[in-house]
Every structure is written in structure tokens, then in C-alpha cells.
Simulated scan of single mutants.
Amino acid sequence: MKAAKAPKFFLSRRWKPNKWPFYVLIGIELPLTVALLALFGIASPDTYRTRLWQDGADNGFNSSPTTGLYAAANYRPYTTPRVWSQFITDYNVAIVVLSLFIMLVKSIMYMLHVFPPILSVVIHIGLTIIYAVSVDYQASNDTTDPDHPQHGAPWYITKKCSVAHDKNNVHYCTQAKAAFACTCAMLGIFVTYLGFALYSCVPTRQQREEYAEKQRLKAERWAKFETYQDEETGETNTSRFPVPETPGIQTLNPMTPRTMAFNTLGGTKDLPLRTHFSSPNPTSTSPPLAIRSPDIPRSPMSPGFIGRIGADKSNGKAPEIEHFSPQNGATPQLYFPPPPKTSKK
């Protein structure tokens, strides 16, 4: 028997080389996510963004926050630089909350073995893109003021925090620098996740052979259902629908408990009462239900009933009741009890 030929390419569902690299990445991502959640939460909505903007303007590093007011007063178009906009502050808070949720879900799914590498590729491509946008906004330039253009990242990233014009802004500068560093670290973690997932999607030689063997067995199993050979002509035909093979003697019909019960009771057709009620001329051979209880007395008004009260009162016997059948020729008579006697005072 020839060995199964391995397929050209398919996506692997196993992580490789083992499960520990994923746990190591989770252990690095968790503290970074908590740190970013705290830093971006402190910075929202505008704790130190405008302060650092004005401090850079005082040092001549970038434009002033009042540049937009002068532009509006002179009817000139003005757009707030991306690095100093409210959008980047809200955006950072949103992406860190989203990444925290995804981290919790993917870690649980990975431990339950329902997180294949291809799903990790899709998720971490998205996380890589949104964190790359955050890094780009935080390190964008500010050229709105021609006298003080800022080409490249803002001053709190490129310079030491000790150069701050207002010494009260030093710790704010440190927080902004730490937030940018943690964002870059998170971007590197997600890129590592992406590379690890892409590497795991490529199957090994052993996985290709196992996959090819499964496909061969599946094809052989379905081939038995799709083709059959005619016993009379000897021709091989292809069936439209798969016919399962029943083990044992093929000429016997399968017996169900219901069929066995009706065969035991003598009924070989369908329910006996169905034809009895549906047809005026029943074909059922079951005996009619004509059982009577001769010992139970009927009502005095019913035909065939004659009551006779014995006249022997000396022995204290109760009145005897006799039953007569209309077949003996006797005429039934009705008995009416006498009216009750009135008591004398």
C-alpha cells in the first residue's frame, strides 16, 4: 500500500513549539495593560495635556494653546495638532480597555484549547493596528506655529523632564513619557504575538502526514457509500445517496419493539381500533365488547326488571328481587312502592 501523499498546504490548529511562550507573553502583557490603564486613566480627560503644551510653548519647543484663538480671530483655518488633541486622550483610554478585555478572553480560550493560531492572527493584527495608531499620534509633530515648529515627537519624549519651564510639570512629563514607553512595549508584545501565531499556522511535516492520512481514510469511507456493484450484471454503479451497510442477514426487516408486541398479540396490521372507528364495515376479527354483569340489578324503570317483595314478614327477611329475561315470554310488570303512612298524634 502506498503512503498517503501530504497536501500542499493547510492551516495548523496547534501551537508550537509548546504552550509556554504564550503564557510568557500573557505574563508580560498583563502588567503593561494595568500600567497603561492607570496612566491613561489619570491623563483623561485633560489632566496634563494642555499643561505640557503650554510648557513647551514657554520653552519655544512647539506652538501655544492660544494659537487656535488667534487663528479664529483672524479668520484663518486651524487644526489642533494630533499630539495635543482631545481625540488621542480618549482613544488611548478606549484601546487599553479593549485590550484588557481581549487579554482575559484569549487567555481563557487558550487554556480551554479553543484558541487556534489563525484566530490569534486575526485578533493581533487588529490590536497591532490600533496601538500603532496610538504611537503615531503620541509621537506626531506640531508645525502650526511657523516661528516654533516641532518636527518629530514632542519635547517630553525627546528631552529630559528637567528642562520643563514650570517645575510642577516635571511629574506630568514623567507620566506622559511612561505612557508612551508602555504603549510602544505593548505594540512590541502584539507584534510578537502575531509572529508566534503565524509561525504556528504553518504545519510541520508530521502534521501534514497525519492530515493526509485522515483525508485518505475519509475518502475511502465515503467511496463505499457512493459506489456499489450490481450482482446480476456485475457493473459498478454510483448511488445518488449513500446507503449504509446493515450487518447480518440483509433479507430480514428490522424488528422494532412495537412490531414484536403486535405480532405477539396477534395483530399484524396497524392499530386495530383505527379501522374499527374509521370504516362502517370493520374488518377486525376481535370479539365485540358485549360482556354483561347479570348480578347487578337495574333500575325499576328499565325493561326486564321485576321486583318482588316477599310476604313472609315473620322471619324478617329483606324483600327479594328476581330477574326475568324477556326471552321466557313473561310480561314485565312495574312495581310502585306504597305511599308512606302518616303518623298519628
Rank of each mutant, 00 (worst) to 15 (best):
N141W: 14
Y335F: 14
V163D: 08
L32C: 05
G60V: 09
S107F: 04
P242S: 10
Y75K: 14
V121C: 02
S286N: 12
R49S: 00
V83D: 00
Y110V: 03
P303L: 03
T192M: 06
S120R: 01
R13I: 13
H148F: 09
P326E: 09
Y131I: 03
N168I: 12
H113K: 15
A71S: 09
V122G: 10
P81M: 00
T256S: 02
D147R: 08
Q175I: 15
S140Q: 05
F180A: 09
A178I: 15
G310F: 11
P257C: 02
H148R: 04
T204Q: 02
F225C: 11
Q250S: 14
T183L: 03
F10I: 02
T66N: 14
I26T: 15
I108A: 10
A311N: 15
G56C: 01
S63C: 07
I102N: 06
Q206Y: 03
L100W: 07
V135D: 05
P116M: 05
L198N: 05
V97T: 11
L127F: 05
D46H: 06
Y199N: 07
P17M: 02
T275H: 13
N59D: 10
Q86F: 12
V163G: 08
G266I: 11
L334R: 12
N253Q: 14
F40K: 01
S279G: 07
V83L: 07
T204L: 04
G56R: 03
P280I: 06
P45H: 05
I26W: 12
K345A: 11
T67Q: 11
E209P: 02
S343H: 12
D147Y: 15
S286C: 14
E231D: 15
G248M: 04
R258S: 07
P116H: 01
K5P: 08
D230K: 09
G234Q: 01
P337Y: 05
D55L: 02
F225N: 11
A212Y: 01
L98R: 13
R14P: 09
A197L: 08
L198H: 00
N281D: 11
W84E: 00
R76T: 14
S293F: 15
P244K: 05
E213P: 09
G126H: 06
G56Q: 02
P297H: 02
G266C: 07
T192P: 00
Y172G: 05
T264S: 14
T183G: 01
R13D: 04
I306P: 02
R221M: 13
H323A: 10
G307S: 12
G310Y: 09
D147F: 12
P203N: 01
C182F: 10
P338I: 01
Y78N: 01
A71N: 08
D46E: 04
N59F: 08
K341E: 07
